[in-house]
Design a protein around this nucleic acid. Structure first.
Lengths: 138, 138
DNA sequence: TAAATACATTTACGTCTGTAAACGATTGAT
DNA sequence: ATCAATCGTTTACAGACGTAAATGTATTTA
């Protein structure tokens, strides 16, 4: 995914923390249940993916290094918490996706998803209202 | 981005070709102007990014290897063409993004972009119509 | 207190990616 | 025909990622 700038045959992280594919799965669990132990995270993910506990611990470690997570010792184990807000991460990742794949054009992206047909009637209604608000503002 | 499954300490490509961040930039140019030479691609990208020609050639090479591009010799140089349709790539990448970041929920994603406020009045109108169609279908 | 258990930390390894220089082949010009 | 310019191919390298085993450390149990 995005977020790294490279020079001189090497790559460095950009200012914004970038959460990898697999790491997003971990973050979803953490945002939902924080503060949470590695155990609980592993248990929660066990229903969704097929990773060994060691793998998830590696991710936790990397997320801490990236300053996306922080932890608090609690006896033997850690309690993990997010250091970045879910909404902010969504925003950044969405913007990066929009730029990368849709060249920054929000309308085609929206059209794409609206036409994908995954929306329920209620969702459509909600969006209609949101669109009205968006229209009124300008 | 997504698309690789790993086993045994190694990673292998999944069935779907995955286009990296930087590669998307190249692909946008190609979809717009194909068939197109490396020269033209490099020239077009020169206005947008700060990569050396060599870098872009590497990407072209990798995209060919990934079977995202094909080429046709034309004397000394190649004419590059996409082997995958833009719309199909958008679809796949969008789906993967939706799953990864929004847990597969299209409505929150759409709400997010509608509220981002980047839409013009005309775009809002267009989307309103699309929503009506989407609603009528179900 | 010693052994077993449960955690976290370190090490590992192959692939992908960003970035580009070096090298080889082909073509155009003199 | 040879030299220079052009274009594609190979090689390079460091960081990120997916995946996980091995190792070290602290806690619980016998």
């Amino acid at each position: 995914m995005s977020g790294n700038a490279c020079v001189n045959g090497g790559c460095v992280l950009s200012n914004k923390p970038n959460i990898s594919d697999a790491e997003w799965q971990v973050m979803h669990v953490i945002w939902e249940r924080q503060p949470v132990t590695a155990q609980a995270i592993i248990a929660a993910l066990d229903e969704q993916v097929d990773w060994s506990g060691a793998t998830i611990k590696t991710m936790l470690h990397r997320l801490v290094k990236k300053k996306v997570l922080r932890y608090q010792r609690e006896g033997n184990r850690y309690l993990y918490r997010a250091r970045v807000e879910r909404s902010e991460s969504l925003r950044q990742e969405s913007q990066s996706f929009l730029d990368r794949v849709f060249g920054g054009e929000a309308a085609p992206l929206l059209a794409h998803f609206v036409q994908s047909g995954d929306l329920t009637e209620a969702e459509i209604e909600t969006l209609r209202k949101l669109l009205e608000q968006a229209g009124g503002d300008s």
